[in-house]
């Protein structure tokens, strides 16, 4: 029995660290989206579907980031207090 318990814990640790890794990934993605290189690209002016391109980009990137974040967190099935 102790053997199985250790294995369960090991599994949980693996999964937990992968959540952390995913979230760090989300952070890096966000930093990439909102830093000058991309920001400059979309700062060129112009319109998309009648809206200023920069506005559309920032809000869509933002919404996308929130969605990815929600996926990264909620995609991980909650398991008791640890979830």
């Amino acid at each position: 029995m102790p053997h199985r318990r250790t294995r369960q814990r090991a599994l949980r640790l693996v999964r937990q660290s992968s959540v952390t890794a995913r979230l760090v990934g989300v952070f890096l993605l966000g930093a990439f989206l909102f830093l000058p290189p991309l920001l400059r690209v979309f700062n060129a002016g112009g319109f998309l579907a009648g809206f200023p391109l920069l506005y559309v980009y920032l809000f869509l990137a933002w919404a996308g980031l929130v969605a990815v974040m929600a996926l990264a967190i909620e995609g991980d099935p909650p398991s008791g207090i640890d979830g």
């Binding site: 979230l23 760090v24 952070f27 966000g30 920069l54 920032l58 933002w62 980031l65 974040m69």
Partner: peptide
């Protein structure tokens, strides 16, 4: 400033990704 008001909300969004840490 146009989008100049946004960083105040994008920053916390980014930081939220690190909250678990």
């Amino acid at each position: 400033t146009g989008v100049g008001f946004l960083p105040i909300y994008l920053g916390p969004t980014l930081m939220a990704a690190l909250w678990w840490l």
